[in-house]
Design a protein around this nucleic acid. Structure first.
Lengths: 133, 133
DNA sequence: TATAAATTTGTAACGATTACAAATTAAAAC
DNA sequence: GTTTTAATTTGTAATCGTTACAAATTTATA
C-alpha cells in the first residue's frame, strides 16, 4: 500500500508533506523520532519545517495511522506498523527491535537477546471516567 | 517492610532523604512523578531539593528498587511495587492504574474500563550488542 | 477571480530533566 | 576528638524535546 492510500485509509487528507512523512515511516521500520524523520527528509524537502513533522506525527497518532512508542524516556519514537507487536529497546545501543507478542519474552532468548524488564502499558478510559461520562 | 529495610535489601545506603522518598513510594501507590514526590514531601522536609528527588529516583531505578514507568509521554512516573504487573493510563483523567498481567487486557472490561491500546515494552540487550560484547 | 478554510512555517516559549560546582553531612584515619 | 577524605545534598544554570502562536502559504469554495 502506498503512503497516499495509507493516509486515505485513516481519513487523513494527503498533503505533500504528509505523504512524504508517511512514506518514510512505511519504508523505514527503525522506529524513528520526529527529529530522525526531519533530518532524513530535509535535504530532499528544503522547505519542510520541524514543527510540521511534529504536528503531522501527532495527527497521524490521533487518527490511529501510527503508534507513538514511549519505550524510550528521552524521545518519542514512531512506528508506521500498527499491527500488534512488542518492542525491545537495547540499553546498550538504543535500537528498538520488533518482537512478536505471542513469543515475547522467550523469542528474545532465542534471538540471542537478554531481557531485563518487561512492561505492559495499556491506554484507554478508566472505570471512574467511564461511569462519569 | 519499612522503607529503611527496603533500601538495605536493594543495597542502597539509607540517608534520611532516601528513606523519606522510599517511604512515600511504598505508601503511595499512585505512580507519582518526581515532582509529585517533591511537592508532597517539601513541607515536612523544608531543605529537600528537587534535584535530590531526581537523583534519588535515578539511583533507586538503577538498583532495581523502583520501576520507572514511561507510560506517560509527558513525565516519568515511579512505582515502588516492583512485582510483575501491568498498567493502564486513563486518557481522560491521566490516572495510572495497576493491572494483573495474567488478566490483562480482559480484567479492564470487567472493571468497567475501556482499552484502546496495549503496548509491550522490553528492556535489555539486543543480539548484536550481546555478540559484540 | 475573490473569499474562506486548511495547512505549513519559523520563532519564541515551556517544562522536565540534567550538569555542575559549592555546601553540607557522614565516614575513616590518625 | 580532631583532621582528612569520601559521599550526599543542594541550588542554579543549561539542555533539549516539544508545543504555542501568529504569520505566510496553499488549497478549497463561492
Amino acid at each position: 500500500m502506498t503512503a497516499y492510500e495509507h493516509l486515505l485509509k485513516y481519513d487523513i487528507k494527503p498533503s505533500s508533506q504528509r505523504i512524504v512523512i508517511m512514506d518514510y515511516l512505511l519504508n523505514n521500520r527503525t522506529h524513528p523520532t520526529s527529529n530522525d524523520i526531519y533530518n532524513a527528509l530535509k535535504d530532499d524537502n528544503p522547505t519542510l519545517s520541524k514543527t510540521t513533522v511534529y504536528n503531522t506525527l501527532k495527527l497521524f497518532e490521533e487518527k490511529g495511522a501510527v503508534l507513538n512508542l514511549s519505550i524510550d524516556e528521552k524521545n518519542a519514537h514512531f512506528d508506521g506498523d500498527t499491527s500488534d507487536h512488542a518492542h525491545l529497546i537495547c540499553s546498550n545501543c538504543g535500537k528498538i527491535i520488533d518482537m512478536k507478542i505471542e513469543m515475547a519474552p522467550n523469542v528474545c532468548n532465542d534471538m540471542g537477546c537478554e531481557i531485563h524488564q518487561t512492561h505492559i502499558y495499556m491506554k484507554g478510559i478508566c472505570g471512574e471516567c467511564k461511569k462519569a461520562n
